[in-house]
Design a protein around this nucleic acid. Sequence first.
DNA 1: TCCCGTATAGAACCAAAGTACTATAGCTTT
DNA 2: AAAGCTATAGTACTTTGGTTCTATACGGGA
Lengths: 234, 234
Amino acid sequence: MPEEAGHHFHSSYRYAKMSDSRETIFIIDDDLSVRRSLLLFLSASGFLVEAFSSAEEYLERKPYDENGCILLDVNLGGRSGLELQEELLVQASHLPIIFITGHGNIPMSVQALKKGAVNFLEKPFKDNELLQSVSEALAMSRQLKADKEEVTAAWKLISTLSRRENEILKYLLTGMLNKQIASELHIAEHTVKLHRQSICEKLGVKSVPEILRIADKAGFTAIQASVTDPRQPG
Amino acid sequence: MPEEAGHHFHSSYRYAKMSDSRETIFIIDDDLSVRRSLLLFLSASGFLVEAFSSAEEYLERKPYDENGCILLDVNLGGRSGLELQEELLVQASHLPIIFITGHGNIPMSVQALKKGAVNFLEKPFKDNELLQSVSEALAMSRQLKADKEEVTAAWKLISTLSRRENEILKYLLTGMLNKQIASELHIAEHTVKLHRQSICEKLGVKSVPEILRIADKAGFTAIQASVTDPRQPG
DNA sequence: TCCCGTATAGAACCAAAGTACTATAGCTTT
DNA sequence: AAAGCTATAGTACTTTGGTTCTATACGGGA
């Protein structure tokens, strides 16, 4: 299936090994000989590799959800490597970037590192330097992905809550009593208990500390009150 | 009091303004003319400034606990700037570092940035570049210090707990019932309640979520059980 | 030696949380 | 129109948590 493998002649390649925990190294460099040698070297080192000749070509690739990292040339036709980095940041990509450059300078490396690059290698670099950075990047990728999945899972749970349950949750996290929450929201204490119960059910837990843990993972912050309450029914 | 101000002729200087929220910029550079011009410029810009001619001289200074940042030359006699950075890292200094160099290279800047430097400026740099970085560094310092103080405060509270209370706390954080904790530790439920009570008193809170928040801030992790319990009294 | 902090425990009581069953009302989806 | 989710509320009961009082026992410090 060369269709999955890549877009252009010689620009993309998928190594045959298909383990379940596959990790791919993406090479983005406009120099064919660089692409080819990196591809050969990293493939020979046992990695899955795909190569692209431009930022745009990489961005057109179908989303990659496994672990991996990116070897990115700073100087590319079209979008530069640094521009691609920013693009990927806003896309919340979990693929760490190792920059590679022939004609880099300090401001470039500073910008790259400040935005989270794993390394900024000058050509020519030693094989070991590359492998070291790749290994670091892959480790980071695993961590990032695991973290992201935790957050996502927590958010999925939280997002099943109804508006009112969400409301109650905020108060629960502060440690307020049912009675207090009830008077705050002008509803019966009993109603709070019911919401509380359905919160526990939806989140699949039984205790307040467990709720807190999920809310924390999801980045759910106990906001202050101030709700427009169209209560006072007729 | 020149004794507080500095160590050597012309190497240190304390600007006169003494606001309560003072923030000092520490200059560490072995070139007297650089020290002098930075000092004059930053003082004129309204900052408190101290200058040192070597890493060692800075390390001998009495500990500085306020906010601030460090302008650090990479090439110093004795310990290099990068070495000082590592030293300060292990000392958990909360002063962000802005590197300054005349003869830097990319690997240096990469190392500096990876270890958390705010910037890596090449001489000559524009005044604005410096001020921009200083402002960023000071903001970071405030954040770091505030975070550190939160953690410290939380830890002080946690450390007032007795061994047994600490034990109980671990279980509380998991959301276990008093009854369950009691049977786990082979003590009466009532005893758990008492410990729980004294935990709340010592931490100055009234609810489990509040306890959780303090424990979280302090980095207190709910560890698994497996306690050597020399129970079964006679 | 006496006092204090720590850890333990029982008895008793009130407050709060959890649960069950019933019930109404608004809104959406089928 | 019927079914389903959401939000609301009442009544009633059980379990858990919080508090007070009393009490024993061990170890350290004044």
